[in-house]
C-alpha cells in the first residue's frame, strides 16, 4: 500500500509537468488546427535557455522569468516565420513543417549546448526529501508540482478571464465568427505558439531539475501525444487530466511491471495505453463532440 501511494504521488507530480506541456500542445491544435510534432524541441529550447541563465548566476526564479520572455518571443517568431505561410495548406504539409521545425530546434540545441547531460548546478531544490509517515518524496518533485500547478492556474485564468484568452477560445470554436468581430486569427495563432513555448519551457526546466538535461528530455514531446489523445486533443482540462494520468501510469508500470520485463516498460506503457484508448474512445475522454441540441 505504501509503495502504491508513493508511486501514485510521484506519478501525479511528474504528471503535472506533462500536463503543462500537453496544455501547450492542445492550445496550438485547438486554435489553429496544427498538429505540432515539435513540442519536445520547444521543451528543450526553454529548458536550455533557463539553464544558461542559471549557470550565469541569475537566481532561479529570475532565470525562469527570462526563459518565459524568450519563449514568448520565440513562439511569436516561429508562427510568423514558419507557420503563417502554411495557412490553408494541407494538414499533412503543415505537420511536415512541424517535423522540420523539430529537427531545426534540435540542431540549434545540439550546436549551442552540446549533447552531454547538463545539470542545474548548484541544485535549485534542496536534496532533503519530504516525509509523510512512511512515504518519502523528493523536494524537487514537490516543488515541480507546485510550479506546474501555479502555471496551470495562471493559464486557465488567462483563458477564462482575459480579453485575448476569450478570443482564443472563440477562435477555436468558430474562427469565421471571431473574425467578424475583429479578432485577428494570426494573432491568436501567434499567441498560441507563444504560450506553448512558455509552457513547454517550464515543463522542460522542471524535468531538467529532476533528471538532468540532455536531448532526451525532448522525448516529452512524444509523451504529450498519449496525454492529449486521452484528453481528446482539443480539450484543455482533458490535456491536464491526460498529462497527470500518463505520469501516474508511467510510475505504476515502472513500479510494478519492470521486474517482469527487460526494462523500458515505463517508456512503452503510455503508448500502449494510447492505442487502447483510441480503440475504445476515439475522441478521448473529453474530446469535443459538436454540441447537438435535442
Amino acid at each position: 500500500m505504501d509503495l502504491f501511494l508513493q508511486l501514485l504521488i510521484t506519478g501525479v507530480m511528474v504528471g503535472s509537468i506533462y500536463a503543462l506541456v500537453a496544455l501547450g500542445w492542445t492550445l496550438i491544435y485547438k486554435c489553429s488546427g496544427v498538429l505540432n510534432l515539435a513540442m519536445g524541441e520547444l521543451t528543450l529550447m526553454g529548458a536550455y535557455v533557463c539553464l544558461s541563465f542559471y549557470t550565469w548566476g541569475i537566481p532561479f526564479p529570475l532565470a525562469v522569468v527570462g526563459m518565459l520572455i524568450i519563449g514568448f518571443i520565440l513562439g511569436l517568431l516561429t508562427e510568423r516565420l514558419f507557420l503563417r505561410r502554411m495557412v490553408g495548406e494541407s494538414i499533412l504539409a503543415v505537420i511536415m513543417v512541424t517535423v522540420g521545425l523539430s529537427f531545426f530546434f534540435r540542431g540549434i540545441v545540439a550546436f549551442t549546448w552540446g549533447t552531454d547531460t547538463r545539470v542545474f548546478d548548484p541544485p535549485v531544490f534542496p536534496a532533503e526529501p519530504i516525509r509523510w509517515g512512511r512515504i518519502v518524496v523528493g523536494q524537487v518533485y514537490v516543488w515541480s508540482f507546485v510550479a506546474a500547478l501555479v502555471m496551470l492556474v495562471v493559464f486557465v485564468a488567462f483563458f477564462k478571464y482575459t480579453r485575448w484568452g476569450l478570443s482564443m477560445q472563440a477562435t477555436a470554436d468558430d474562427e469565421m465568427a471571431a473574425l467578424s468581430l475583429g479578432v485577428s486569427a494570426h494573432r491568436v495563432y501567434a499567441l498560441a505558439w507563444a504560450i506553448a513555448f512558455m509552457a513547454a519551457g517550464v515543463g522542460g526546466t522542471l524535468l531538467g531539475n529532476i533528471n538532468g538535461l540532455n536531448i532526451s528530455v525532448g522525448y516529452l514531446g512524444l509523451l504529450v501525444l498519449p496525454a492529449v489523445v486521452l484528453g481528446g486533443l482539443n480539450s484543455v482540462p482533458g490535456a491536464i487530466v491526460g498529462g497527470i494520468a500518463i505520469g501516474v501510469l508511467q510510475n505504476l508500470s515502472a513500479g510494478y511491471l519492470s521486474r517482469f520485463t527487460p526494462g523500458g516498460i515505463k517508456e512503452i506503457a503510455p503508448f500502449a495505453f494510447m492505442v487502447i484508448i483510441l480503440l475504445f474512445r476515439p475522441y478521448g475522454l473529453w474530446g469535443w463532440v459538436k454540441i447537438e441540441r435535442v
Binding site: R163, L166, A170, A172, D173, G182
Partner: peptide, 15 residues
Amino acid sequence: FEHLTVEENLRVGAH
C-alpha cells in the same frame, strides 16, 4: 461560440 457562455460570447464581441 458554443463552448463559451452567453456572457463570454458577448465579451468576445467587445474584443
